[in-house]
């Protein structure tokens, strides 16, 4: 065990894992996080806590992660390189570990242009690849980037993201390979709607032997409506929503679209489960945490193991 987190235990035991996601509120109201925790507790193995996702200011990932711990939910702290230089990055990692965080997802971060403060200065002192290396160095060598010995190494289970749907497609698998070389223990992918393309990417990764050294979790986000599907298709960079998905949602009455969206998500989970090299799913029910229990239930993934 590298970190001994619940997520690491489940994945290492070879159990098909499931992680959830919790977007912190745009305010200091802790109750919002506690409320979301209720739907996630016992239904997933760990919960990603987003770090000012889409560059919109929210309660800090660390703050919300601590609330989850208080609620008995294991957090997976997301950290972007957009807003903090290497000094803040390392300091935040130390603080997070000291407060009980055991999983981290290392990201570059969406550009602030997409967010609610487009006038902000960006940092990007490190990129996601270097962020992964930093956490690994701190964990395994017990030192900072500069080689300074730490009094207490942060034993994190290190995650990274991968987007098989961004361009250029041929390079995507090499980028994954680099992240594994950098030190990623697990990978969570962008939301999968185009299973054919995803399968092609997974095949490439299998051919290169990459998935023997890393736990790959496929990203799943249930669509709430045709509107959401169209928005994801047209306005979210690096998202691949095939027309069939939109047609399928259009094919049911408006009141049933959410149900159909969940059905698609569940089908995707079943497909992922059959795929060689897939260790679990990352369920991102965006501002829809209350539906997580039924989705996990329908996917036949309950009860979650207690290790």
């Amino acid at each position: 065990m590298k970190a001994g987190s619940n997520l690491e235990k489940v994945l290492t035991a070879g159990i098909f894992a499931i992680t959830g996601e919790c977007g912190p509120p745009r305010g200091a109201n802790a109750e919002v996080v506690r409320e979301k925790a209720k739907f996630l507790k016992g239904n997933v193995d760990s919960v990603n806590v987003t770090d000012n996702q889409t560059a919109v200011v929210r309660m800090s990932s660390l703050g919300a992660s601590l609330i989850l711990i208080q609620e008995g939910v294991e957090p997976n702290l997301q950290m972007t390189a957009r807003d903090r230089n290497r000094i803040a990055v390392q300091s935040d990692i130390l603080g997070a570990y000291a407060l009980g965080i055991r999983n981290m997802l290392c990201l570059s971060g969406d550009h602030q242009k997409f967010g609610d403060h487009p006038e902000a200065k960006n940092v990007f002192d490190l990129d996601s690849m270097q962020l992964i290396q930093t956490v690994k160095k701190m964990r395994d060598e017990g030192t900072l980037i500069n080689g300074h010995k730490l009094d207490g190494a942060p034993k994190m289970f290190i995650g990274c993201a991968a987007n098989p749907f961004a361009d250029p497609f041929e390079f995507r698998v090499y980028r994954l390979a680099n992240k594994i070389d950098a030190g990623a223990d697990f990978v969570q992918t962008q939301c999968i709607y185009n299973l054919e393309r995803f399968r092609k990417w997974v095949d490439q990764a299998n051919d290169m032997g990459l998935l023997e050294n890393v736990f790959l979790m496929g990203g799943v986000t249930p669509m709430k409506s045709v509107g959401m599907a169209k928005y994801m298709k047209n306005s979210v960079p690096g998202m691949d929503v095939p027309d069939e998905i939109i047609k399928r949602l259009q094919g049911v009455p408006k009141g049933d679209q959410a149900k159909e969206g969940i059905k698609i998500a569940v089908e995707t989970i079943h497909q992922l489960r059959e795929m060689k090299g897939i260790a679990g799913v990352h369920l991102m029910a965006i501002e829809w945490e209350e539906r997580v229990p039924e989705i996990v239930e329908m996917a036949g993934m309950l009860p979650r193991p207690v290790l």
Binding site: Q112, E119, A120
Partner: peptide
């Protein structure tokens, strides 16, 4: 007031 950095390299 806080500077608008979007006109700088920060804006891409």
């Amino acid at each position: 007031p806080t500077k608008n950095w979007s006109t700088s390299r920060d804006g891409g």
